[in-house]
Structure formats: C-alpha cells, structure tokens
Simulated assay, not measured.
Amino acid sequence: MGAAHFGAPATTGLTKAELTEWACRWLAAGNAALTFTGPVPSALDIPLPAGEPVSHHQDPPLITVPTLIKSQKQGVALSLLVPSPDADLLCEALRYELLARLRHDSGIIYSVENFTTAIDNDQSQLDLILDPVRQNTVPTFREGINTLRGVVDAGFSEDAVQSARHALMTELGWDDYIPQDHLDQLAIDTLFGRSSRDRQELLDRATNVASGELTKILRASIGSLIVAFDKSVELSKADVRGLGLAMDRYEIWQRNKDPKNAKSAAEVDAESTTWRHKSTQARLTLTPTRLMTQTSGKTRTILLADVDVVGDHSCGGISLMDYRGRTCDLNMDEWKAGKKLRRKLLEAFPPEIIRSFSEE
C-alpha cells in the first residue's frame, strides 16, 4: 500500500485493437463465471468460444520483513498478509481496535477504511487506511503500530470480536438474498482454482470465533507488516528504529555508488545524448540502457529495463513507473530542447508500455 502514485490506469488510451485482443483472450468459456441470487433461468444460453487456457502467474513478494514505505499519498496505511479464511473477521476486529484507540481515546484520526484482497488460496492482503490531519501523521504512525503490537501482546478485546462478528453476520445474514460481494468472490475463487467457504460456513465461523483465535492469527502475521507513510512529513530515525521497521529507501532514481564510473560509461557511449536544465546546473543524459541525472556532482540513474509503464501526457510531460510502482514525472518545459527530449524518451521504450494520459 502507498507505493504506486501513477494516477488512473489510462483507459482512455486503449485502442480498438487492444480491446479486441483482450476480449479474444479473456472472454472464453474456461475463463468466465456467472453468479445468480436465484435459480438459473432455463432459457439461459450464452455461447462463448473455448479459448486458450489462461495461466495466472504470481510474482514473489518484493518485501519480506516489516518495512516502512515513504509514500506520496497522505496519511498512514497498515498492511498485513493473513490467512484468507479469517481475513474479513481479523480486518473488522483490527478496525475496531484502531478506532477505539486512535479516534475515541486520542482523537488523532477521523476513520479507518479496511480492505481485504485474496492473494492465493491461503493468504489475503489486509489493508487499513488511517486519515489524520497532517500535523497528527506522526502520532498516528506511532499509535497505529503500537495498537497492532499491543493486540498481539494482550489479545483482542471482547468488544472488538463482537464488532467483527456483528459486521460479518450483518453482511451475510439476510435470509432472502445472498450479498453480491460474496457471490463475486465465489466466482473469482472458482476462476483461480481456489477453495472457498460457503455462506453458512462463514456465518458459523463468525458465530463461534473467539478472541484467542484471532489474536493467534494476528501474532503469526505481524511479521508481514508494511506501513505506508506520508513522505512530506518528517519522521525521525529514532521513531523508525524504535518500532523495529526496516526503511524502504528504494526510489526510481538510484544513486550510483561510483559516480565517476557512471559518468565515464555515459561518455564512451556514442549514442548518449545530454540535455541541460533551463534554470539550474542539472543535466539529463539518455543512453540506450539508462536515463541519468547529474546534479551538484551526484549522479542518479533509472535503468530503462526497469520501467514498466510510460505515461505520455497530453500536456507534453512524461511519467515513468518502474516494476516496484515507483514513479517520476518529467516536465519537458524545464529542459532545453524539451521537444527533442520528449521524442527521444518515447523512442527509448517499447511501444506497448507507452500509454496516452489525458489531463482531464
């Protein structure tokens, strides 16, 4: 949570050919599921082509220890990997504990938004979004983590368990209709080959769950904690160390350990081109393999192969996003010969990763 800051996925830039290719690949009998809140109509006939079997690749995690991410988004977000069967109950119980301590007791947040997303057959990602005003961001950061670790040590309160139980039973407990979100999740689980509990199993679990069980689950999951934090707010190193978090210092611009070597490599590359900033001493150098910026004797680099999406803005700017979701925006008006820079940048990347971005 909090890593990517790239705006909308540029659906306005999709072409007819791309949409047709997508439909031919994905709208196939082996990759479609229908859900109904009542009996299936006898006259239903939706023929779909058999299509090719669709493989679902899952990338390994990029972060494997409790980590702090500096985000361009405001506020604080807490993220955990938890067992899928109890993800919703755990999420609601944590939401209650955070509201009780950070809103009702301390008055430093307004609300807690919570989400769960299935990752595989066993695990789901649990996200809790806290929304303090900016001056309360650091206290929210500290108290949010302390609240989670306090629950790990002392256990969930019975009120939190009752609140989680009530929330899930309300969502699933209507006799005359099955909630749409539950049906959607059943369809998704089927398409991914995942097992899923039926509605009654979920209701039974909500009815019988105990504080000790949820606490044990959280205790086993706390090692996957990731905290996203508003990067515009100053946070001391002591705060980070004191809470036992690693700092994710990865940025799309990577510093070269030996700037002299990086500079000489660019100079010997006959195909490199350099642009100068209009109002500073900064320089931007583009080679066939990397984009480099030199400022005050320091060189930073983006490897072109790491870039997954290029945003071609209608205003003339260029945005780059790498495989980790880190981004940068380049304003062509700030650079001498900016039109040539823009053209060379777009030519440096495969056409299939370049998306048109509207400013509307």
Rank of each mutant, 00 (worst) to 15 (best):
E143C: 11
V133M: 06
E143W: 12
L126I: 05
N146A: 15
D153G: 00
Q125L: 11
Q125N: 07
G150S: 10
D127Y: 03
F156P: 15
L128R: 01
D120C: 07
T147D: 11
L126T: 04
A164H: 11
T137L: 07
D120S: 08
L130V: 08
L130A: 04
I129W: 06
S124P: 12
V161S: 11
R165I: 01
D127F: 02
R149S: 13
L148S: 11
L128P: 02
E143H: 14
S163R: 11
H166P: 04
A167V: 03
F141W: 07
G144H: 02
P132K: 04
L148T: 11
A167L: 03
L128I: 01
R149K: 15
L168R: 04
D122I: 09
V151A: 09
V138A: 10
R149L: 14
R142N: 14
A164G: 09
L128M: 00
D159S: 10
A154Q: 12
R134M: 00
D120E: 01
I129V: 06
T140P: 01
D159M: 00
D120F: 00
N146F: 00
D122Q: 15
Q125K: 07
R149F: 12
N146S: 12
R134Q: 03
Q162K: 05
F156V: 13
S124Y: 05
D153A: 13
P132V: 09
H166E: 07
R165H: 04
A164C: 09
Q135K: 15
Q162A: 07
Q125R: 14
Q135W: 07
P139K: 10
N136I: 02
R149E: 15
L128D: 03
F141Y: 15
D120K: 02
A160S: 12
N146Q: 14
A154F: 02
R165Y: 02
V133S: 13
A164Y: 05
S157M: 02
G155I: 06
D153H: 12
R142F: 13
N121R: 08
N136M: 05
P132M: 05
Q125V: 01
R134F: 00
A154C: 08
Q162W: 01
R165A: 01
T140I: 02
S124T: 07
T137N: 11
A164I: 03
Q123F: 07
D153M: 04
L148Y: 11
N136H: 13
L128H: 02
I145F: 08
T140N: 05
Q135F: 08
P132A: 06
A164D: 04
F156S: 05
Q125G: 08
V133C: 06
A167F: 04
D153K: 08
A154W: 04
E158H: 13
Q135A: 01
D120M: 01
S157C: 00
A164K: 10
R134T: 06
Q125S: 06
Q125C: 07
V151C: 11
G155M: 04
Q135Y: 11
G155V: 11
N146K: 14
G144S: 04
F141Q: 06
Q125T: 02
V138L: 15
V161T: 10
E143T: 10
R134P: 06
